[in-house]
Design a protein around this nucleic acid. Structure first.
Lengths: 343, 343
DNA sequence: CTGAAAGCGCTAACAT
DNA sequence: ATGTTAGCGCTTTCAG
């Protein structure tokens, strides 16, 4: 059956649609008695104004589009939750899509969001984490962003001028490596991360830099990028353990690879941290429930989400915003790191 | 700047808007040359038709509303991913909201989705898991569902007649308990779950029933509901371990409580499964990465999501669907269960 | 094959 | 305080 419209209720209340609109939006004074009658009818028919019609006119949908690479990675739901919390203030709701890091899907979702006239876009993962991003992918996003306020979270599009909110990953990496060095570790490895992604290169660069600052030598055999999964952490740790000269501590690009590394070590009858120290990155909820609890760099995912939405709200209000808002991560020391056995 | 409309491009192409509409939707033959010109203009201006305007007319938005209690619980992203996969076939996108199990938020989101005229609603958690759900909450959902195709996932609204898709939790529980019994366990405990939720009572009932079938006695002291968090699993396990008579195996209502229980046991210097066997429920991705890997009942979250959307699509096409579609879980035996030490 | 015109449901001047 | 009316951007008869 047809949904009831503002006309239906105007007719039954014997007033014009304008009056009904007025009581719905409380946009002008209406006589008590008419207002009462209208309100009664509204609840009688359970009338809900059609947001499409309204949006068509107002050019606002109350929807923010979110593109994430993989909601199954606990970091993203956390960011999303933060975003949702912050968006309450402006009454925005979310159109969410998993891109699985596939740039074609990203393009598709971008296009859908554009058609649906979302008020803003929060973009995570995929092309904005690529070390070498195809020019037309950059242009596509720039083009959309010129029409729809867009914020990039934890990523970048080389000289695109797009607004970003990001964790300072260099700083976080330095924190972790310094922690290991201060515990007395001299032989430190690096596990995980795909080579063509910026997160990996940023962390690797910071790793080398901090090692140098701490007066430590980097052993190239122990630099083992792969991917971001638990499996890859496991795989690389196994490789490391099969070498004759092994590190006493390992920096992993994220908590998943760290957990994989711990699994591999444990299954090889080594104890973490007694035999080898491991530090992760992200601080996903699980990291402090794992056995042993993971020492890691907290990304403040929740705050990242909140901040991104704050920036987006400012943009939607046409306020001026900084090109880059940085969030400083901090180190969370738990059980997976300790001083090395042999000095 | 104003978005370009179908009028703009009609004007420049020197044709009517109708013709432009025709080439966009390929809804009637258009002469090759005019079509070419129009298409050129479309890409020149990067024109994207306004979905609002279109929806207003077609009474379809291409959006499915999803209400989940907590995306931070890895079970839900998995369901969502399945849903997303299935929705590709019908080209639907998702408006997603976390209700945090708060019925007021649910109502709010329901209302927003109704205003936005989503094509369908997938509802998880919250009120549909309550043992005693307030009548007006039931009515509210029934009311919405009478206008918008709605499917309840893993929940129920007592004699509301609403369409549901659900895991057979009784069956799953039986699977787990039987597994424990077959390993030789006679003293089995039950941890987790909030008392006022149906998941808990369904599982508890199945637990008792299966115990009886296996000829085992239920010790009431070992029935320890609480909540669904890792913390609560830990808490109840600690309580259990402080008793003078302890069970040799434990059924946990979900993987999180199982992980909490393992943590508590491990920290109390007990070994899982050597000293105590633990079985979970859900099979979240993490359960097979935990140490020890968790024996659990797989909910097939991904398939649950896919199935729910399939059902929803059928409803949106006004096909007849079954009131209840059941998914059979299966047992995944991993490392956290083994035969008890003392016979 | 193409154009004119009537809405879809609502808001916002502009009148009264 | 309330009614009239002109759109918002698009699709879809109905006529050519």
């Amino acid at each position: 059956m047809r949904e009831v419209t503002i006309y239906d209720i105007a007719k039954e209340a014997k007033v014009s649609v304008a009056t009904v609109s007025r009581v719905i939006n409380d946009t002008a004074p209406v006589k008590g008695s008419t207002r009462a009658k209208i309100e009664e009818l509204i609840s009688k028919y359970n009338f809900q104004p059609n947001a499409m019609a309204r949006s068509l006119l107002k050019k606002e949908t109350g929807i923010i589009g979110v593109i994430v690479p993989d909601l199954t990675n606990p970091f993203f739901p956390e960011v999303f939750a933060g975003a949702e919390e912050e968006a309450q203030s402006s009454g925005h709701t979310f159109l969410l899509s998993n891109s699985i890091g596939d740039t074609r899907k990203e393009s598709e979702y971008l296009s859908i969001m554009r058609e649906k006239r979302v008020d803003g876009i929060m973009f995570l993962g995929g092309r904005i984490n690529l070390k070498h991003c195809d020019e037309h992918l950059v242009q596509e996003l720039v083009q959309h962003a010129s029409v729809i306020p867009t914020v990039l979270v934890n990523g970048e599009l080389k000289n695109s001028g797009l607004i970003r909110v990001a964790t300072d990953e260099s700083f976080g990496t330095a924190l972790a490596v310094r922690h290991l060095a201060q515990l007395g570790h001299k032989k430190i490895g690096f596990i995980g991360g795909e080579n063509h992604m910026t997160t990996t290169s940023i962390k690797l660069r910071a790793f080398r830099k901090t090692m140098k600052e701490e007066g430590l030598e980097v052993c190239e055999d122990w630099i083992l990028p792969d991917s971001f999964s638990i499996e890859s952490g496991k795989r690389q740790m196994l490789k490391l353990l099969s070498m004759k000269e092994k590190p006493t501590a390992i920096f992993c690009v994220n908590d998943y690879t760290a957990i994989g590394a711990i699994k591999a070590a444990t299954e090889s009858r080594l104890s973490v941290p007694d035999d080898i120290s491991i530090v992760g990155f992200d601080d996903i909820p699980l990291s402090h429930h794992f056995i042993p609890e993971l020492t890691t760099v907290s990304q403040k995912a929740h705050e990242l989400g909140r901040t991104a939405i704050k920036v987006l709200q400012a943009m939607m209000n046409k306020e001026k915003v900084k090109k880059l808002t940085t969030l400083e991560p901090h180190l969370v020391v738990r059980q997976s790191t300790s001083a090395p056995v042999q000095p």
